[in-house]
Write a protein that binds this DNA or RNA. Structure first.
Lengths: 211, 211
DNA sequence: CACACCATCGGGTACGACCCTGAGCCGACC
DNA sequence: GGTCGGCTCAGGGTCGTACCCGATGGTGTG
């Protein structure tokens, strides 16, 4: 029988969920604050934690991160009134294995909990798309680079190799040009991007996925 | 009525799918190669492309990337015999909105296509977990670091700042110690991790999400 | 207590990174 | 033809990095 732990700052809601799940699932415990939740989950070690996203003291994310550090096998299912993309992505990034809204029916919730317990991921229909968007965003995001237009083709070439950690001498060999020329390009790149050294440049480039 | 385009290098399989979907969905066209698929999809502009992952000439990913560049509104549902994590992640990263295995039943496939057409994401139960793992991997990956145990607390501190691109002088100010001490720590870090310069160190650290 | 380990510094060296000035060559544009 | 921008180099300088040597105190352990 799947053991589930309830976390929600509204006692009334916990009572309702407990009534819906009663008999079908084993409710190992419940909590109304982040601190109580972390302690309770660690003590009872349930299969699944049913977790409200919006709570004082950091919300569901804080609970996931704290518990996951000590009990990586415990799974989390987010349960929220919100269907905002940032809420979904945030809690999934923290480690939750699913996200359902509070409009869900009792039997569907039972099914979702069971599936999460078995290792599946469960989402309310509309919400899975948010995660996919965030996941495949990279390819689309790199288009918007106004500052990169300042660079010439050759400078972009040098930039790429610089960001990869190549030494000037290596870049020179790679591009069949003199070290001095590489220095010139590198200097121009740094000046145009308003950076002071190649370490900042490395971070600049990795932030924009140019590697 | 949802218009769907079939892409699979096995004609027999396309016939089977077409038979299953016939009447319920509008099959706009079909193709057996990447080139045919790209041309056909661009011509017919369907709502959803049902796409085999494993095909000659780059597979489903090639089709998605080519079509997505010109028709970003067309949605893709991957259909494959494989349930390997790398296949799922690869095609999702390319931009597919769902992934189902070929063991799926006809009615379920129809339902999946309709949901993808409406903007939802659809996965065979086991497979959604792969995407979430890849998405939130960062937090788990840093656990397995045998080499990092070689470093002392102070060295780890310096490592963090080095990886962030701080100069020795800045690190010295930050930690209220001498530049010489920073040099010593940095040298020890490089030696213990068997790296030769701070660029390699930066990449080493970013690979392990220590920033 | 001796010993190992760590953190803290210094001197000195070699090399790379970075900047500045200046210059020749070439193609595009007016 | 003149001008401008980009690519290609050079000399010469400052500063950061990496590594060598050494030294001092504090810490914990056998």
């Amino acid at each position: 029988m799947t053991r589930v732990f309830l976390v929600d700052d509204h006692g009334m809601f916990r009572t309702g969920v407990r009534a819906e799940l009663g008999g079908v699932l084993d409710v190992a415990g419940e909590a109304g604050t982040v601190a109580e939740a972390v302690a309770g989950v660690r003590r009872t070690e349930p299969d699944v934690v049913l977790l409200d996203v919006h709570m004082p003291d950091g919300g569901g994310r804080a609970v996931i991160e704290a518990v996951h550090a000590t009990h990586p096998d415990i799974r989390f299912l987010a349960l929220s009134v919100s269907d905002a993309a940032e809420d979904v992505i945030g809690v999934i990034r923290a480690g939750a294995r699913g996200y359902v809204t509070k409009t869900i029916s009792g039997p569907d919730l039972v099914d979702a909990i069971r599936r999460v317990a078995e290792g599946d991921a469960v989402f309310s229909p509309r919400l899975a798309g948010f995660v996919l968007d965030a996941f495949s965003m990279r390819a689309d995001a790199r288009v918007t680079d106004p500052e990169l237009d300042l660079l010439t083709a050759r400078e972009r070439e040098v930039l790429r190799l610089l960001a990869r950690g190549y030494a000037y001498k290596e870049i020179a060999t790679e591009l069949f040009i003199s070290v001095k020329t590489v220095e010139t390009h590198a200097s121009n790149v740094l000046r145009k991007l308003q950076l002071s050294n190649r370490h900042e440049l490395t971070r600049w480039a990795t932030d924009r996925r140019i590697v």
